[in-house]
Each structure stands twice: as C-alpha cells, then as structure tokens.
Design a protein around this nucleic acid. Structure first.
Lengths: 211, 211
DNA sequence: TAGATTGTTAATCGATTAACAATC
DNA sequence: TAGATTGTTAATCGATTAACAATC
C-alpha cells in the first residue's frame, strides 16, 4: 500500500493521531471523521486524510474511520508490535528516570541491560537491572545479538565515542539525550531529545513578546 | 531589524547555530563563513544566510561572520540574557532531574520553587529547594509576581488542571513534560517535550527498514 | 585592485489546503 | 435513494535552493 518514502513531517504527526485514537478507543468511541479528528488535533481534515492515505485507505466513504481499525493500523505503521531489545548507557539520574519510564515498554522497547563507567554505580541495581561496566559493552552485544537499540544518557563529552562503539558493535538505533549531534552511518537511526534546544525556543518566544 | 514574524521552522534552527557558535568560540575561532557553518550543521549555506538575515545583517561581505559577534547576536535573539524566574510542579524523579539540569540556568531559567501534591514529598529538599504543597501555588504566585515560567513534570491526568491554575495565576510560559496536549490561551507559550512521540518515531524508522 | 562571501531577489521544490468525484 | 465523508487531484502557499549583484 506504500507508495515511495513518506516525508518526515508526516511521520512526526502519526504519534499524535495515535494518542487521540487510544483516547477515543478507551472512551468507547466507535467511529471518527477526519473533521472530528481535526478538531481534536488541530490539523486540517484535509491534511489528516492526506497523511493517512500515504499508508492506505483506512476509512469508509460516507462514514468516516472506525476507531479500532485506525488505531490498529497506526500501531502497525509505527511498529509498536515489534519489541526492540534495548540497552541503556549512562545510569545516572536521567538514565534511571528513563529506565523507569512507562511509555517505554508501551512503545515497544524493552531494556535488557544498563551500563555505566562510574565504579560507584557499577553493580548497583536500577529498576530490575544490575548496572554493568561499560567495558563489557562489546562482549555483551556479542553475546546478545538480539539487542538493536541503545539509549544514550551520558554526558556530552563521551557521547560520540560511545556511539561509535555501539555502531561498531552493530546497533541499529540510538535514542540520544546527550546534547551533541551524533555522527552515525546511514542506516543507523538516531533520534534526539534536545532539552536545551527546546528551552531556548521557549526563551525566544517569551522574549519576543517583550520586544 | 526584524521584518514581520519569523517562521517557527527558522526559530527551531537557531539553537543549533548557537550550539556550534559556542563551540567555535571556545576553540578560539575568529571567523566563520556560511559555507563552513553549513558543513558543521548540515543546513545549506544559502539557508543559513537566509535564516540569519531575518534578524539582521550580521556578516561582512567577502569575509564571513565574526564568531563572537554572531554568538552574541544569537544570544540576544534567543533571549538568553533575560533570566526567567521559574517554578517546577511535580517533584518526582523526572522533576528532580530537570531541577538539577545544568542547561537550565545556562538557557536563562532559574528555579525559585518546587511544588508537589504528595504529602511524603512535601517538605523534603531537592537541590536547594524545599518542596511546597501544590495547595500553596496561588498564594506563592501572588507573593512572587516575578515568576513567569512553570515546568510541568506531573502525570498526564493532572496536567491540564494544573495548567489552568497556572494560567489563572498569570503564568506566561510552560515547559511541559506531561504527555498531554495542554490547552492554554493565546499569549501563554507552551513548549512540549514529548518523549513517547519521539520513541514512536524511532520505532517507525526501525520498523520501516524491515518492511 | 582582485577575490571572496554576504545579502537579497528569483526559481524551484515540497507541503498544505481546497475542491470534488467516487462511493458507502 | 439522499446525505455524508472519504480518497485523490488540482491549486495555493510557504520554505528551500540557486544565482548574482553589492561590497568588504
């Protein structure tokens, strides 16, 4: 049903559709029109229909979309049914929060190991994981070929070096919290959370109002 | 020097320019051309010049841009010199991490109080803040008119109710970590961190490769 | 001055919106 | 059937890229 590559602007709207469909489904709603979805999401009805039709015709003319059907389709498109085995590197405060983050497993990621370089942290337990030495990273990945994703919650300074080691060891995706633009070969997917960039954007708009 | 409203796509590139300018300045670099900045950031030289010219002509023909000048200009544009007094609501694990986050003060935000609704947390110390009861929110804001920004690290369920109270009490900006689309009147700036949306995007691209 | 690089206008590209025929 | 709403094509809008005159 897919026709060529779907643009990233479209992809980044999908999670929002999915969020509202979960809500509608929980509320027991049966059907939804692009018009109603437009009122919820703030996107135009036209755009919503265009977006969804990148992946197939999920609606019925004259009726709209079945909530359960659309939700299930989005689940498949977003790859939620596939559980990606994930390791976390940097078991500091942020790492600990992420590790305990519920949305994580709901989105199809399962943490199977944690690593840190700090002797004081290695061996301690976070969630249900014993923190390992980052020195064991390569051996662990050799022994656990099912690991495909890494979360990086290390300081800016070490981030690229760790990313290089992960790539070398065969990682396929990185969820990066380090405030650094990681270099990775084509095919390795890097998804960044840039807290500072977000803050500076907030600062811009706050300041703009006073200018 | 500003000509009308600058589009959000432009604004969201500014923090990245700023990041690289800090780095260049730290390294002692004196000048940079749009071409060199293009190689660093991945944006085209043409786009960089267009972006910067929304705010003024900061370069010199035949020479390029002075690193120190451009960095200072971006600092002003992003509103970094203005320190916004900030309160944090939701002193759980994530709240604690955010509170200790260094980039926070560097970006021009200073946490002056923390609130939580959990009796077991109220009264405890996080960083240099004693956690207050969220019941005191309105009184605190009345007594501290200098507070302009709030960070929301509460569960999804309570987020909108807290946002409403903050708006009523005169807040101007919200940095929102709750996975919920907050309703706020025009003029109140809401900047969202959507961890789950980011994860689902990663999931999409990982899954796409296998399709 | 000659060479380099900006600032800015014009051309292109892609994304959004509008419109409507298809059809449930 | 008549009414409603999709799927899809065409029109519009905005963002990016290319080109080049201005000028340091």
């Amino acid at each position: 049903m897919r026709k060529g590559k779907v643009s990233e602007t479209v992809i980044r709207r999908l999670p929002k559709y999915y969020r509202y469909l979960i809500e509608l489904d929980d509320r027991g709603e049966d059907r939804i029109s692009s018009q109603e979805l437009s009122e919820l999401t703030g996107f135009t009805a036209s755009q919503i229909r265009q977006d969804l039709n990148n992946f197939g015709g999920f609606g019925q003319q004259g009726y709209g979309y079945k909530v359960a059907v659309l939700k299930a389709e989005l689940e498949n498109i977003l790859g939620i049914p596939t559980i990606y085995k994930t390791i976390l590197i940097g078991a500091g405060r942020l790492g600990t929060v992420i590790c305990n983050y519920k949305g994580f497993l709901d989105s199809g990621f399962e943490i199977v190991a944690m690593f840190d370089r700090d002797e004081r942290v290695i061996g301690s337990t976070v969630g249900n994981q014993v923190v390992r030495s980052v020195d064991e990273l390569e051996q662990f990945m050799k022994d656990h070929e099912e690991v495909e994703v890494a979360i990086l919650t290390v300081p800016k300074e070490g981030a690229q070096a760790i990313a290089d080691r992960l790539v070398e060891a065969g990682i396929r995706g990185i969820w990066n919290f380090a405030p650094e633009d990681l270099e990775a070969p084509e095919g390795v997917i890097v998804e960044n959370i840039r807290l500072t960039d977000s803050l500076l954007t907030l600062s811009y708009y706050l300041t703009e109002r006073d200018r």
